[in-house]
Write a protein that binds this DNA or RNA. Sequence first.
DNA 1: TCTGGAGGATTAGCGC
DNA 2: GCGCTAATCCTCCAGA
Lengths: 84, 84, 84, 84
Amino acid sequence: MTGIGHNTGGDQLKLLLERVENLEAEKQALADDVKDVYAEAKARGFDAKAMRQLVRLRKQKPEDRKAQALLLQTYAEAIGLDLI
Amino acid sequence: MTGIGHNTGGDQLKLLLERVENLEAEKQALADDVKDVYAEAKARGFDAKAMRQLVRLRKQKPEDRKAQALLLQTYAEAIGLDLI
Amino acid sequence: MTGIGHNTGGDQLKLLLERVENLEAEKQALADDVKDVYAEAKARGFDAKAMRQLVRLRKQKPEDRKAQALLLQTYAEAIGLDLI
Amino acid sequence: MTGIGHNTGGDQLKLLLERVENLEAEKQALADDVKDVYAEAKARGFDAKAMRQLVRLRKQKPEDRKAQALLLQTYAEAIGLDLI
DNA sequence: TCTGGAGGATTAGCGC
DNA sequence: GCGCTAATCCTCCAGA
């Protein structure tokens, strides 16, 4: 007889997978929204690549960002590379 | 005098960036949730790697999944690779 | 006077970068060769995607590959997913 | 009877896979070498992350690199972000 | 601490 | 030509 609790492993697993899938569906929807924003920006004449750089830079703490920029500048100068 | 419309480019850009950043913050929160689900699954004895494979497989259309699996089997047999 | 050792840091750095760049150029050449092989395979009627899967599978140790396949099968059955 | 040409498909496939695998083994060896160079650089006090940035920048054509840097600066100023 | 693996982002190739 | 998918690269994080 198949009492309550039969196949519990499979049911548990299925529920876990569904939770993951729902979360990832929401993530995907947001990713699509991000894409839309960049498309809108492009339509207004902005450059998406540069915008992505800005987003990355703004995520960093200012001190970290500055330290990295400084280090890069130092290295660039040491090897004679024009960053400008 | 600085009338309406001054710095509009910068303001537009800032608004676009903020929309992107808000969306990405939400994405990150969801990514964290996904990670939590896998951690919970692991705590219950499930293997996260296999679960990720299942999520990937379930994303595909059944016919596509089967066609690919069949082709792989055919090739594996042709070169003498045991898939089991 | 600029004696021996002047700008040593910059020179060292430049040499290190050049070593990296040379290695990466060789890597790129090999990557191009790989691409050529897949193109040739495709021209002969083989499916590149399935071939990539095979390459991945053959990289694994047989026992690992089988253990993973078995676990996946077990999970797939538990949630009622047809892998075939 | 198994004449010449039997299993030709499988043999062809196997040969193609082996060509890919050999190339990828060489690629991996080079990737390891690259890693070694970065490790050596680190041991000498250089920052690997900044070095990777330099490698990326040096791959670009100077005019492209400068155009991008300029655009980034323009945008950064427009939104009041200090790049320094 | 550091090494391997997974996720995310970028980029190139392809198809529409 | 552009959007999209697939591959590569980089970053982060868990695990040893």
